[in-house]
């Protein structure tokens, strides 16, 4: 049934012209300068160190690289990272365990 529900949601989003992060739970990444990075709709922390934060999302694993990283706040759906951010990338669509 979740398959049907997802299709229904996708259809509604298309019909109402709503952005995907609202309806489909797509990850949304906001980078503010090189200092703050906000990730919404994440699915949990896989790994965290001062140089790297790995998050799982519905569309793969999100890796954030940087130096002196600090998680300013982490909630059920959003993470705010602070530090000198060098970059971030996704790893495919498949779930992975921590590298």
């Amino acid at each position: 049934m979740p398959h049907v529900g997802r299709k229904l949601r996708k259809w509604t989003a298309h019909l109402l012209d709503l952005p995907g992060d609202v309806t489909l739970g797509l990850p949304r990444v906001t980078l503010i300068g090189r200092m703050w990075l906000l990730v919404e709709n994440h699915a949990g922390v896989l790994h965290f160190s001062s140089r790297r934060l790995t998050l799982s999302t519905s569309h793969g694993v999100l890796e954030i690289d940087g130096r002196n990283l600090v998680i300013r706040m982490i909630g059920a759906a959003e993470v705010i990272v602070e530090g000198e951010i060098d970059g971030f990338r996704f790893h495919g669509g498949a779930f992975q365990d921590s590298p």
């Binding site: 949990g44 965290f48 600090v70 998680i71 909630g75």
Partner: peptide
């Protein structure tokens, strides 16, 4: 790392999470 993951998932917001050089976490 697992504690960090589960705490967030359980709806306990954590703040100022810092990874210490000796692999410990403070928050």
């Amino acid at each position: 790392q697992a504690v960090l993951r589960e705490a967030a998932a359980a709806g306990m917001p954590l703040y100022r999470v810092r990874a210490e050089p000796d692999e410990g976490l403070t928050f």
